[in-house]
């Protein structure tokens, strides 16, 4: 089964896999960042006093969470070029990495919306009341009292979200992006042995996810100082 391992385990192949891993990491990081922005917008919409915003926020979260991420990626891959053509009239060859980041960001944003919303709702009502009796406005209370506390609760699940994104970024290999999983497949096709490169890909994924978990635990310890 592993007969070709020595053949596969070359410096060039390792660099190729490493590049794939970096791309996976970059895509996940960008998706986390844009997802966080979407999450802030989504959570604000869901907490809005306007029904329309709450409704839009709910639809966003429910649609994204209720459908497979693979389907969302494939749909965006089909829809984006068509939309571009409809708007500009010209035809483009879509950049699969850009589509990948957009799809993952939209997906992550829905989960982050719920993280932020529950982080804010989890803060004791007394904090709002105390701030109110001291004359702070709603906006000041949110910025100075609620969000700093909610942030501490949001960080740990946000780290899990990052880890999820690193793993789920493998799905964009289906639209042709060469990230870590696809890199392993390419090597596998060259040597007619998928076991060795897949195993190596697992090691790369674990190296990324475990080191993020490690950093996260350190960070949590620091954030918990005032508790």
């Amino acid at each position: 089964m592993f007969v070709a391992f020595e053949k596969v385990f070359t410096l060039a192949n390792m660099i190729y896999l490493f590049k794939g891993a970096l791309i996976s990491l970059m895509i996940a990081a960008l998706a986390l960042f844009f997802g966080l922005i979407l999450g802030i917008i989504g959570a604000s919409a869901k907490r809005s006093k306007f029904f329309l915003f709450r409704w839009l926020g709910n639809i966003y979260v429910e649609v994204i969470r209720g459908t497979p991420m693979l389907l969302q990626i494939l749909l965006l891959f089909a829809v984006m070029p068509a939309m571009y053509t409809a708007i500009t009239g010209s035809v483009i060859r879509p950049n699969v990495y850009v589509i990948g980041v957009i799809a993952l960001s939209i997906n992550s944003g829905a989960y982050t919306t719920e993280l932020i919303r529950s982080g804010i709702n989890g803060i004791d009502k007394g904090q709002w009341e105390a701030a109110e009796t001291l004359g702070l406005s709603n906006f000041q209370t949110m910025k100075l009292v609620i969000l700093p506390q909610a942030f501490k609760r949001i960080v740990p699940p946000l780290v899990s979200e990052f880890i999820t994104l690193i793993k789920d970024s493998s799905l964009i290999s289906t639209i042709g992006a060469v990230e870590l999983l696809k890199s392993a497949q390419v090597i596998g096709n060259t040597y007619f042995d998928v076991m060795s490169p897949y195993t190596l890909a697992m090691v790369f994924y674990l190296a990324m996810t475990l080191s993020i978990s490690f950093v996260a635990r350190k960070l949590e310890g620091r954030l918990a100082q005032s508790d």
Binding site: A131, L134, G135, L136, Q140, L144, Q149
Partner: peptide, 27 residues
């Protein structure tokens, strides 16, 4: 009107001094 709660409701993410200066500075 100042208000004192049964459960204090200090801001747990700030030290005592910052608890006392927050509203003075911002309000």
């Amino acid at each position: 009107m100042g208000f004192v709660f049964q459960h204090f409701h200090l801001f747990p993410h700030m030290n005592v001094l910052d608890n006392l200066t927050l509203a003075q500075i911002h309000v």
